[in-house]
Design a protein around this nucleic acid. Sequence first.
DNA 1: CTGTGTGCAAACATTTTGCAAGCAG
DNA 2: CTGCTTGCAAAATGTTTGCACACAG
Lengths: 153, 153
Amino acid sequence: MKSNKSLSYEALLETFKSILRSNHLKFTAQREAILRTLYEHPDHFTPENLYLLVKEKYPDLNTGITTVYRTLNLLEENKLVTSLSFGTQGKKFELGNKPHHDHMICEVCGSIIEFEDPKIEALQQAIAKAHGFKLTNHLMQLYGICKKCQEKE
Amino acid sequence: MKSNKSLSYEALLETFKSILRSNHLKFTAQREAILRTLYEHPDHFTPENLYLLVKEKYPDLNTGITTVYRTLNLLEENKLVTSLSFGTQGKKFELGNKPHHDHMICEVCGSIIEFEDPKIEALQQAIAKAHGFKLTNHLMQLYGICKKCQEKE
DNA sequence: CTGTGTGCAAACATTTTGCAAGCAG
DNA sequence: CTGCTTGCAAAATGTTTGCACACAG
């Protein structure tokens, strides 16, 4: 499918393998299946979504949802994926091979639009600095109604 | 305690009562205890925190955690409180009687610093407009290490 | 009186953990 | 071989719901 990503799968896989090696962890078929599925579907996944998709694409591996959670946590700790919080309804994950960006979320259809704004990033840095705060990460989500859903009404 | 709020408790209480009236809901001692506790402690509460505090301050009411959840949801639907998501670890609520602001969250001690930046707000509006997106709300959280925790290390 | 609100216990949804067996290195 | 990894089931967490009694309007 959509393969015009900023990073090739081979490069991503190498990164993953080297993370595993340097932590004395093992490269397994399940871990690769999860990574590949994330790569081939540049969407925002709940762990459940991803679990179902991996099961569908690699039924022989009989991957459990436990492994999906464990692998997502591993990938997130190593910054290969990032997550968005949705209150009680858990998190959504996405592969972190794109440059940093933020999200606009449609409250009607749930679709997610990505955007990037260097000016906002710069302002965030300035604010943190003013409070003596050492920034490690940030999250910005704009909620509203997307173009399509406005037209439908 | 800190009572120099932008809104008096009486005014807040009236707002709450009129919301209840217009929805044919009832004004109860538990609901008032929860509202008052939120007002008197301008902190960021988990439902559990708030539940314990209400129990401590109004032991005779024997308020259950169920009621705290129900009341917080009611208040949030009516925009009297707002919430921040923390992934699996639930939400934190705060009384919405302050002007709009965003949050910086310390990853070490969990403390929350509030800030406000009109320039960022303006940029958000501009981005939404560029995507034909009708903004209703937004969330910005900066994660990092606060001044105190940096000094401790 | 009527119907909403309450606390309790149970149900739920999501994520994590304990364990015995499997497999990568 | 060693010990990390897996799937399963059970536990843990955070939140919601069903129910019978209580109480506001």
